[in-house]
Amino acid sequence: MNGTAFVALADLTHNHQAFDELRRTFATVRVATARERAIAELKALGSDVTAAVVGIKERIDADVLDAVPELRVVGSVGAGTDHLDLAALRDRGVHVVTTPGVNAVSVAEHALMMILALAKRALPGHAAVLSGEDRAGMAESPFELRGRRVGILGAGATARALLPMLHALGTEPAVWTRRPERHSDLPVMEELEELLRRSDIISVHLPLTDRTRGLLGPKLLGLLPPGALVVNTARKEIFDLAALRAVVSEREDLRFAVDDFGLAADGTTSSLGPSTLWSPHVAGVTVEALRAMQETAVRGVVEAMAEPAA
């Protein structure tokens, strides 16, 4: 059989379809004892490991690859690749499996929830009830989405899943992408600056790359109309994190929602302030989406192992 498969995600063992497929394919399947120890345990297995199934918290770089020289395939449960050193993996001939688009509806629904929560002032309303102030405790009134202009950054699967939801609510969405010629079926606006000037709501669905890191800083966010909402269910680093406090200081009217890991630990929560809606990177991990991503990643790993070794 195909050596040892290492699984960094203990919850994959509860997905019997995916886990049984791994056990049928590999002589041994080793599961990390704890997520925070996964990389150390992977490296400790050395040459025994021929495949690994990881999540976005597991950084697979040259140092890891040096420790597992027989690794042939990495399956990542997620669409992003910023945790993978793709150049190092390519140089060593390691096949990479990701799950783009599998959780698109999950992320789109979460983005819509955040947009509605900000527009309807859900957090201030909740606090006003608990304080006993009721409506008098709300500094801002809720507003309708109907007729509002929504700018979507990105034209991938999650952006496409969000579009019909926004249309159903009577909004006027427009999409910005670096490659508009590839998306002639979408309502594309070619100039990012113009999209921001005209959008009451921004929803971020871009991959984190060298070109998108820090994209949204004071200059671009300053173009937004008064009272605009900014929802980021992609990666927090698409914001210029070092400049967020200055943005909020200059534009106290803006309202933000962010879904990602480590938002308190790295100071993002204190930078954006108490009016922001937060979630801990759960947009893409509904019960249905997580199961589908696990099965897609495992299927890709199994198929890659069936191919002749490079």
Score class of each variant (00 low, 15 high):
residue 157 A to M: 03
residue 95 H to Y: 04
residue 87 A to E: 14
residue 115 I to Y: 01
residue 111 A to H: 05
residue 117 A to P: 12
residue 89 L to E: 02
residue 133 E to R: 11
residue 129 V to I: 10
residue 116 L to M: 13
residue 86 L to Y: 08
residue 84 L to A: 01
residue 130 L to M: 14
residue 57 K to H: 15
residue 139 A to R: 12
residue 64 V to Y: 15
residue 153 L to I: 10
residue 56 I to N: 07
residue 131 S to K: 00
residue 75 G to K: 05
residue 126 H to I: 03
residue 74 V to L: 07
residue 56 I to F: 13
residue 88 A to Y: 06
residue 54 V to R: 15
residue 115 I to S: 00
residue 136 A to M: 13
residue 142 P to L: 12
residue 97 V to C: 09
residue 69 P to E: 15
residue 53 V to H: 10
residue 133 E to N: 03
residue 63 D to L: 07
residue 59 R to K: 13
residue 67 A to T: 06
residue 86 L to C: 12
residue 161 A to M: 04
residue 162 L to K: 10
residue 59 R to I: 12
residue 143 F to L: 15
residue 74 V to Y: 04
residue 74 V to H: 04
residue 60 I to R: 02
residue 95 H to D: 08
residue 111 A to Q: 09
residue 129 V to G: 11
residue 150 V to N: 07
residue 80 G to N: 10
residue 166 L to S: 05
residue 112 L to G: 12
residue 166 L to R: 07
residue 58 E to T: 12
residue 159 A to M: 08
residue 83 H to Q: 06
residue 101 G to E: 03
residue 65 L to P: 04
residue 130 L to H: 11
residue 96 V to T: 04
residue 57 K to T: 10
residue 134 D to H: 13
residue 152 I to C: 02
residue 55 G to Q: 06
residue 81 T to H: 09
residue 139 A to T: 12
residue 59 R to H: 12
residue 81 T to S: 06
residue 103 N to D: 03
residue 85 D to T: 12
residue 55 G to F: 09
residue 101 G to P: 03
residue 74 V to N: 10
residue 137 G to F: 02
residue 150 V to F: 07
residue 144 E to G: 15
residue 151 G to T: 11
residue 161 A to C: 00
residue 61 D to G: 13
residue 91 D to F: 12
residue 120 K to W: 09
residue 56 I to W: 13
residue 157 A to P: 02
residue 156 G to Y: 07
residue 165 M to V: 03
residue 144 E to Q: 15
residue 144 E to W: 11
residue 120 K to M: 12
residue 160 R to K: 08
residue 125 G to S: 01
residue 143 F to Q: 14
residue 65 L to N: 06
residue 107 V to N: 01
residue 167 H to F: 14
residue 138 M to T: 00
residue 90 R to H: 09
residue 73 V to K: 02
residue 133 E to Y: 05
